[in-house]
Simulated assay, not measured.
Amino acid sequence: MRRLVLLVFLLIPFLAAPARAAAAPIQVYGSWHCGDDACIWGTVRDIGEFDSKNHWLVDRGDGRPSVNLVVLSFVHPVKLLHRTTDAQTLDGVPRGMTADIVSYFKSRGIRVMLSIGGITYTDAWDSALAENAAQFGRNAAEVAQRLGVGIEIDYEENTGPNLVGLQAFIDAYRAVLPYDPSGANPAARLTIDLAAGDRWLIDIGRKATADWLRADRPVLDYANAMVPARQPSTSGAIDNWQEHIDGKPQYSPAFPPLAPAKFTGGLYIAEGSKVRPECANFSTSLQNSTGTFVQTAAPKGAGTSSGLLGYMFWAAERPSTRGVTTAPPNSCEGGVGGGATAYAIPIPMPALRQS
């Protein structure tokens, strides 16, 4: 009897220990790309010159790409609605976002998307949605089909966003390009950017989480939790992302939880004047120190599978007129590329987890 009691006593810690979630493979591992003019993309690039500044994206040092997604940032909302042609824009699209640039990435198995908006174009989003949100959505779908790219919604109106107009934009886009769970049609991929956590862009985040990012009836493919004002600590990044998973039931109306499989976490690779470990050194980077959380974060009321979809990095080449760029000698093979190797990032991107 004593032996039985002793055996049970010894087994208690193991019986009481909670099951550890299996690590989900990282599926999205991408970078926003600002071109060489702080996200304007206002001039056509020579492919040789472009490659000299961006080769790390397509070659981590062993011939394999460092990422499986590049998001060209940004398209001006009103110019897209009006299909404007001017010195920096051709038929509503920045002149630098050419078929050749898209092919540069796609020919290496890297998915390409165009981002509409950004913080600089918040007022332009408001104007385009107020003028003709449905036509705006149809124009976005036409560009996506013509270039063979997806579209990212980056509408950063923190106070009083036009959610009716945004719904009309999404409905019009989806009328042309329905949601495709297989991911086979690049143009059918439609995503949205949310704040780093749940305390900014609250109205957009609540609406997107409740109506467009549900695992049981998806409208948008996924969301990106954007970078905060400055690079966070490991715990700060995890806290932000956990907010999306938990939701904010104390808000009125409540902010619902988001399935981990419906969003990525954003980190800086170019910020200020310093080359960050996230660009240069995977072993000391946040994509390394947060990796366990990103691969095992459990759902808290939405979704059924553990783990975020992956990471997005802000931003390749020159995201601001001042500060560091990711062009040589600051290219990111050692950080982003090192992470692609460590996490065995699939290239091309596979069909994404849905729940």
Rank of each mutant, 00 (worst) to 15 (best):
N68M: 01
A210I: 06
V149Q: 05
E131H: 09
E49S: 10
H76Y: 08
I204T: 15
Y155I: 08
A327F: 01
L166S: 03
N185Y: 01
T321N: 13
L194Y: 02
L10Q: 07
N240Q: 12
V78N: 05
G310V: 04
P178S: 10
L129C: 05
L163G: 12
E333H: 03
H76S: 07
D246T: 04
K274G: 01
G61N: 11
I153P: 12
D46G: 05
L4M: 12
E131Q: 15
E152H: 09
D221T: 15
G117Q: 08
N162F: 01
D221R: 14
T234H: 11
V112L: 11
G183K: 09
E142L: 09
V78Q: 05
A87Q: 03
R214C: 03
S306D: 09
L129V: 13
R111A: 07
S235E: 15
V336I: 14
T284Q: 15
Q135L: 15
Q287L: 12
C34V: 04
A270Q: 13
S31F: 02
C332T: 00
D239C: 01
G303Q: 06
A327I: 02
P253E: 09
T43C: 02
G150L: 02
Y343E: 09
L309F: 06
R95I: 01
Y155D: 04
D126F: 00
P25E: 11
E333W: 06
Q354E: 06
W314T: 06
F9R: 13
A270M: 10
R2D: 14
D37Y: 06
A297T: 07
V71A: 11
V71P: 06
A188L: 06
A351M: 13
L286S: 14
A210L: 06
G303W: 05
S283F: 12
M1G: 12
K248V: 13
T264Q: 07
V176W: 12
I12Q: 04
A24W: 02
V8Q: 07
P232K: 12
N281M: 13
A298H: 00
S331P: 11
G301E: 09
E317D: 14
G334D: 00
V67M: 03
D62N: 15
R20E: 14
R206G: 03
A316N: 12
T292Q: 08
Q242V: 02
I245P: 12
A187P: 05
V70K: 00
G165E: 09
V102A: 10
S305M: 01
A237V: 09
D154K: 01
L352Y: 05
G272I: 10
G30C: 07
E271M: 09
Q145W: 02
S331A: 10
G337E: 09
S331K: 00
A270F: 04
G339V: 04
L213V: 03
T325G: 00
G35P: 05
T292H: 07
A23L: 11
T325W: 00
S66F: 04
I47Y: 01
A23S: 15
A302H: 06
G30Y: 03
